[in-house]
């Protein structure tokens, strides 16, 4: 019994029942499949996070984001005062997280590829693109660069899903994807 010491002085040499060996073999094969799915998806899949990241001072990141907004703002989002920015396809785009907003609103073109830069200027935030359900952690002083290719036109929201203080549940931004 498992609550008493093993009866035999040497238990290492006991035979193992066939179904147990069979199960261990099956489980091992499944473990290998689970493992190789990840590198496999890096080769053939279209959803992989890049490993591109930099250290960056929050004010530098804010400057770059503002520079993009100054150049490519096309309108304002409702009466929120937040600019809607339509950067050229294929280029670098920035989204900045701060208490408690995602800034600015981006307008992207369907099936175009962008280099999305994400960072925070204060605390840790969570970039959650809905209804896609793409979730990425955003840290202060680190900039993550992800190549994104929106595949459907429509209106998307960016919800914050890392707790960031009492206004956390109000932190929602937007991304529009338009047909060209």
């Amino acid at each position: 019994m498992a609550i008493f010491p093993p009866a035999q002085r040497i238990w290492w040499k006991e035979p193992i029942e066939r179904s147990e060996i069979l199960w261990i073999t099956i489980a091992l094969v499944w473990s290998l499949i689970l493992f190789f799915m990840m590198p496999y998806w890096h080769l053939v899949g279209e959803q992989n996070l890049s490993n591109e990241a930099y250290r960056i001072k929050p004010d530098v990141f804010a400057e770059r984001t503002e520079a993009m907004a100054d150049k490519y703002t096309v309108r304002e989002e409702g009466d929120t005062g937040t600019p809607v920015v339509h950067p050229p396809a294929g280029g670098d785009i920035y989204m900045l997280a701060r208490l408690w907003e995602w800034w600015p609103v981006l307008e992207l073109e369907k099936d175009q590829t962008y280099r999305l830069h994400l960072s925070s200027v204060d605390w840790v935030h969570g970039f959650s693109l809905l209804p896609e359900n793409i979730n990425i952690q955003v840290h202060p002083e680190y900039e993550m660069v992800i190549t994104v290719t929106p595949n459907r036109a429509g209106e998307y929201s960016v919800v914050c899903n890392e707790f960031c203080g009492i206004g956390h549940h109000t932190m929602v931004g937007k991304i529009y994807v338009v047909d060209k």
Binding site: F4, P5, A7, Q8, R9, I10, K13
Partner: peptide, 11 residues
């Protein structure tokens, strides 16, 4: 297999 507590079994 031995029935004795803490027996040495077959070894």
């Amino acid at each position: 297999m031995s029935d004795e507590a803490q027996g040495d079994g077959a070894n």
